[in-house]
């Protein structure tokens, strides 16, 4: 019975079950992380020295490999000297959940190392601005072009083959070129996001426009709609809910290009924060910053999904999305 429920194909669930499963999808990885962090006999390949004993190179607070520690304990025992003491520990690059949780708070309250460096919230805001301008610029070109390609077959044939080619060129490869053209500050970063998003955007939206039921266009024509008005009065409103969904997915892609974009020219934004903290081996801060990107991205998406339901009351698909 339980097996049947887990593997029932595309059945609707109760809202409670949906919520419970959604929470569980976050709790499961967290549980795994907790087990690895807090259960001493799971993994823990290192030993945190609390008392070096007679080993001359060890100090309290030092992390050594388990093998090295065990060897030294054996050596000291043979020589009848005080063996070192320590507790199992994980490598420095895997902090425990509570450390990351604390870093979430302290990262915002700790002043930057140098007084002219940005605070974390300033870094985050800078990243959001880069995404915003990159995605806006890409959409201003990509959405109309996509709709035109999806409506007029000849124009699509003229435009799409080149775009198909261009979308395989990795956006980061244009980093140096963009710096040469646009300088070292925000210009090339926005450009990388545009290059990463635009070409996919044209093709995705053209495809969406092509999926519009052709009889709707025919019906409009028999009602006396001119060719130009077809685009504005039938194609655009007809694909709007799907277009909105596409844009949500594409915005996610724009976020994935953020880190590369911010490494171009002078490092900036959340990426600058991450690389700084990694340099000082503050990996709790690194994890906190990576998670902030995830939370921001998912938060935006949920917000847009909510908004979409209000904007398109006729669209039944959004109810299920």
């Amino acid at each position: 019975m339980a097996k049947q429920r887990w593997f029932s194909i595309r059945r609707d669930m109760t809202p409670r079950a949906r919520l419970a499963l959604g929470i569980a999808s976050f709790l499961l990885p967290l549980l795994l992380w907790c087990i690895v962090s807090y259960v001493p006999f799971v993994w823990h390949p290192k030993v945190l020295i609390s008392d070096p004993g007679a080993v001359d190179y060890m100090e309290p607070g030092m992390l050594v490999d388990k093998d090295v520690f065990n060897d030294e304990v054996r050596n000291m025992r043979q020589e009848k000297l005080a063996p070192p003491k320590g507790s199992p520990a994980n490598p420095v690059y895997l902090p425990a959940p509570h450390e990351v949780a604390k870093a979430f708070y302290t990262a915002f309250t700790t002043p930057p190392a140098q007084s002219d460096d940005p605070w974390l919230h300033q870094s985050l805001w800078h990243s959001i601005k880069i995404i915003f301008w990159g995605f806006l610029l890409s959409s201003v070109i990509g959405v109309p072009l996509g709709i035109i390609c999806g409506t007029y077959g000849r124009l699509a044939r003229l435009v799409e083959p080149f775009i198909e080619f261009f979308r395989y060129l990795p956006a980061p490869a244009f980093g140096a070129l963009m710096v040469a053209i646009l300088g070292i500050y925000d210009g090339p970063k926005v450009a990388i996001i545009v290059i990463g998003t635009l070409f996919q955007q044209v093709l995705v939206i053209a495809n969406t426009a092509r999926k519009l039921d052709f009889t709707l266009l025919e019906a409009a024509m028999t009602l006396g709609t001119t060719r130009f008005k077809l685009i504005t009065h039938v194609v655009v409103p007809g694909i709007l809910p799907d277009l909105y969904r596409d844009q949500r997915i594409l915005l996610g892609w724009a976020w994935t290009y953020l880190i590369v974009a911010e490494l171009v020219g002078t490092s900036s934004g959340i990426t600058w924060f991450i690389t700084q903290q990694a340099r000082y081996q503050h990996f709790d801060n690194v994890y906190a910053a990576i998670m902030m990107i995830g939370i921001l991205g998912l938060g935006f998406d949920l917000l847009l999904a909510r908004l979409g339901k209000r904007l398109f009351p006729w669209d039944q698909a959004t109810g299920k999305a």
């Binding site: 039921d213 709707l216 019906a219 028999t222 409103p237 007809g238 709007l240 006729w314 669209d315």
Partner: peptide
């Protein structure tokens, strides 16, 4: 020349 189609061709957004 008005036309009524076999399929449903009302504009769903209106």
């Amino acid at each position: 020349r008005g036309m009524v189609f076999q399929g449903y061709t009302l504009f769903p957004w209106l």
